[in-house]
Design a protein around this nucleic acid. Structure first.
Lengths: 411, 411
DNA sequence: GATTATTAATAAATATTTTTAATAAGTTTG
DNA sequence: CAAACTTATTAAAAATATTTATTAATAATC
C-alpha cells in the first residue's frame, strides 16, 4: 500500500468561493500556525483562529486526511485529559532553492518541515548575460530534479536567487537574462515545469537566516551581505521588505565616501567601493605590492592571482595584514550600519556573505564602530550577530521563499 | 427626537467571543473598507470580505442601526438595477489631536469621516520636563474638550505628539515628562477621561500626510520633517514603521559629517548639525555677521534675535542669502535622502516641517542632489513632494492615530 | 486508592450562514 | 416600447458552524 498523496488544492484559490474558499483559507492558516509553532492541539487552533472546537477538529481531521499534517501523539499533561498534538508531515511536499553565484551554483531540496534534505554545492557555472548561460542554469536545475524523480510530483516550487535588481512580483530580472519580453521566472518555469520564483540574493539570504538561521524571535532584522559586492535584506515585522519595484536594500551604492573610486554602477563614492569583498581583495593586493608582509604574499608570488577565498583563509590563520585591513573595513562599514540602526531601530543585524566568514575579525570592528556612532538608547536595542547558515543561507532562503509563496497561495 | 447614539461596542472585543466576536470583527472590517473606499454597496462588501450577500446586507443594516454608517442613495447605474451606496456617518464619533511644540500647542477635532472640524493653533505653552508643564498641557486639552461638551460622549480618543523618543505601545515618553513609573499616556488619560495615545511628532505628521495629505495611492512613503531638528516618519505598506522600541526614523542623528560640531545628542557629525532649522538659522546668522547682505540683516539690527520664522519669510521674499544657504543645505540633505532612497526604494518622499515651507527653494536643491547621488533605475521610482498639510500635519496625524487605534480595537 | 478537579473530545441541539431561487428595478436592443 | 438582459435585493431552503451538554481521560487531593 502506498502512502496517500497530499491534497495540494488548498494552496490555491482557483475556482472556489464561499464555504470552500473559507475552508481553504482556514486550512492554510492552520498550516501557517504550525509553521511557527511546530506543533499544536485542536484547542490551540480554535483559540488562535477564533473558531469553535468542533470546527477546528474537523479542519484538523481533513488536513490529516489530506496527508499534510499528522497526529504526533499526546501532549505532556497540563493537569487534565491529555490533548493530541498535530504537526506537519515532513514529506508532504518539497521545494527547490537555487543560489546562482558568479562562477558556480548551489542547489538544494527542502522538505515541508523546513529541513534541507539535500544540497549540492559549487556546481560549475558561468553567470553571463547570454541565452547559453540561462540554458546551462535550467539544465543544472533539471538534472538536480531528476535525482529525486520519485518526489517530483511533490516538488511544488523552485526559488532562484540572482544578484542585482529583481522584481519578485513580476518575475523580471533587470541585471541578468533580460533579453526577452516575458518575465524570466515564467521562462524558467516553462523549462522545468514547476512554479518558479525569483528573488534578489541578499533578500533571499536574509529570509533564510530569518526563518531557519540565527534569528530567534526578532521581527525587525537587517541582513548585511558582505560578498563580492555589498547588499542588504530587510525584514520588517517578519516580512521581507521590497520597496516600490523590489529594489530596496541597495546598500552597496549609497553615496558614502568622498573618494574618487568609480563604482561599477557608474557613480562615485559608493559604500561598496571600500567595504566589499572586492574592495578588501584590492586593498590587500595593494598593500602586499607596497611591501606589507602577509602569508598571502609569501605563498602566492603572483599577487594578481590572490582570490577572495585566500584572503578569508588568511584571516582564519590570523594573518596580521588581513586582520588590519578588515578592522579598517569594519570601521567604515560600522559607520554605515550605524546609519541603518538609527533609521530602522532593528532588534538584530546579521552579518552574512563571504567576508563574514572571517568571523569576529569583521564583527568586532563593526561592533565598536556602532558604539562610537550610534546613540546608546537605540544601540542597546540592537544585537549584532554573524550568520549561522553562512554559504547555505542562499539555498535555504531560495527554498523558503518558494515555500512561502506556494503556501500563502499568493501567486 | 434626538439622533440615535452610535454603538461604540464594536470598537472593543471585551467580553465577547464566538459569533459576537466575529460580527464585531466583520463590522470593523466594513468600516475599515469604507475608510479607504469612501462609499460602497452591499455587493462590494460581500466581495471584499468574502462573505455572502445576505450576510453583508445584515451587517450593513446593523451598522445603519448603530448609526455608524448611512444609506447615501443610489449609485450611478452599472447596467442593471441600481445599488444602494453606504458611507460613514460623519458625526458618529470624534477624535482629538494634540501637536505639542516647544513654545506652543496646536489642537484639533476630527470627525468620523476624517474632516478636521476645528483647529486651535499656537496655544501658548512651554514644553519643559516638569509636572507643571504637564499640568498645563492637560489643562489645554481639557479646555478644548469643554468647548465641545455636546459631543464629549462621542470623543473616543486623543492622540498626542511629542518630539523625541516615544514608545507608542507602552505609552512611555523618554524625552519628556518621564518622572513617574506609570506610562505617560495613562497619566494623561486619567486626567482627561478619554483613551489617550502617544506618538512621535515626525511619525504622526507622516501619518497625517499619508492619510489625508499629499499621498495618493503610494504605500511606501518617507516623510522628512525638517523643523528645528530633523526627523523622519516611515510608512511601509501603508503602516507606520516603529522599529523595536519605537525609535525608528532618527534621521537627525545619523553620522554623516566629518565636522566638529557637537550635536545636542552628544555625538559629533550628526546630519542634524548641518541640515535642520537650527543649523539653517545659525548659518544665516553667521553669514550676516560675516557681512553677507540680506533683508534679515537690514531689518533686524540685532542678529541674535532673528528667528527661524523670519528666515522662512525671507525665503518667500526671494532673499538671496537665504536661498543660497538653503541650496547648500538641500544638497547635503539630498545626499542623505539619496541613501534612504537606495535603501527603501520608496514611491514617494514628502518634505515637511517648518523649513519645507520655503517650498521649491528647498525642494529643488534636494531633487538635483538626488539625481546626482542615486541610480537612475531606483531614483525614477521616487517622487519628491512638498507637504500639503504643512503645520497642520501634526494635528491631523495625531487625530488620525487616535482614530486608527480606536477603530482597529488594538488597545 | 477513591474522589474531585481539570482539561479534551465528542454528540446533540441550536443558531447562523450560505445557497439557491424568486422577485424587483433598472438598461439595452430589436 | 416591449422583450431580453443585467444587476440588486429579498425569501426560503440547505448547509454549516457554534453552543451547550455529555462523556472521556488524566492529575491532584484527601
Amino acid at each position: 500500500m502506498t502512502a496517500p498523496q497530499p491534497n495540494y488544492l488548498i494552496f490555491s484559490n482557483e475556482g472556489v468561493s464561499g464555504v470552500a474558499w473559507k475552508n481553504r483559507a482556514l486550512k492554510r492558516s492552520v498550516i501557517a500556525y504550525l509553521d511557527v509553532s511546530d506543533s499544536c492541539t485542536v484547542m490551540d487552533i480554535s483559540r488562535e483562529l477564533n473558531i469553535s472546537v468542533p470546527k477546528a477538529a474537523s479542519l484538523v481531521s481533513e488536513l490529516v486526511q489530506d496527508n499534510l499534517i499528522r497526529d504526533y501523539g499526546k501532549i505532556d499533561s497540563t493537569g487534565g485529559r491529555k490533548a493530541n498534538v498535530y504537526g506537519l508531515v515532513n514529506d508532504a511536499c518539497y521545494f527547490i532553492g537555487v543560489d546562482v553565484k558568479k562562477y558556480y551554483v548551489n542547489i538544494g531540496l527542502l522538505d515541508f518541515k523546513k529541513h534541507l534534505l539535500s544540497i549540492r554545492e559549487n556546481v560549475p557555472f558561468q553567470l553571463e548575460n547570454t541565452p547559453g548561460s540561462l540554458r546551462a542554469l535550467t539544465d543544472i536545475i533539471r538534472r538536480f530534479i531528476s535525482d529525486f524523480s520519485e518526489l517530483e510530483s511533490r516538488i511544488l516550487g523552485v526559488g532562484i536567487n540572482l544578484s542585482g535588481r529583481v522584481n519578485h512580483v513580476t518575475g523580471y530580472s533587470y541585471s541578468f537574462f533580460h533579453f526577452q519580453e516575458e518575465p524570466l521566472s515564467r521562462i524558467i518555469q516553462q523549462e522545468i515545469g514547476i512554479p518558479t520564483f525569483l528573488e534578489n540574493d541578499s533578500r533571499s539570504m536574509a529570509y533564510g537566516e530569518f526563518m531557519n538561521g540565527v534569528v530567534k524571535n526578532e521581527r525587525n532584522v537587517l541582513f548585511i551581505n558582505i560578498d563580492f559586492g555589498l547588499g542588504m535584506g530587510i525584514l520588517i515585522d517578519g516580512n521581507l521588505y521590497y520597496g516600490k519595484s523590489g529594489f530596496s536594500g541597495e546598500l552597496g551604492h549609497i553615496p558614502f565616501f568622498q573618494n574618487e573610486k568609480i563604482c561599477h554602477c557608474g557613480k562615485r563614492g559608493c559604500l561598496e567601493t571600500e567595504t566589499s569583498g572586492i574592495a578588501l581583495l584590492e586593498e590587500i593586493k595593494e598593500r602586499i605590492r607596497g611591501g606589507s608582509s602577509s602569508i598571502l604574499g609569501q605563498k602566492n608570488r603572483d599577487v594578481d592571482r590572490i582570490r577572495l577565498e585566500d584572503v578569508i583563509e588568511a584571516a582564519r590563520k590570523q594573518d596580521t595584514l588581513v586582520i588590519e585591513v578588515l578592522a579598517e573595513l569594519g570601521d567604515k562599514l560600522g559607520k554605515a550600519i550605524a546609519i541603518l540602526i538609527n533609521i530602522f531601530n532593528p532588534e538584530l543585524v546579521v552579518l552574512g556573505g563571504k567576508v563574514s566568514e572571517t568571523g569576529e575579525h569583521i564583527r568586532l570592528p563593526i561592533r565598536s564602530a556602532l558604539n562610537k556612532y550610534t546613540l546608546g538608547l537605540v544601540n542597546n536595542d540592537t544585537q549584532l550577530k554573524l550568520s549561522r547558515l553562512g554559504e547555505r543561507a542562499g539555498v535555504m532562503g531560495a527554498c523558503l521563499i518558494a515555500r512561502g509563496k506556494v503556501l500563502s497561495a499568493a501567486h
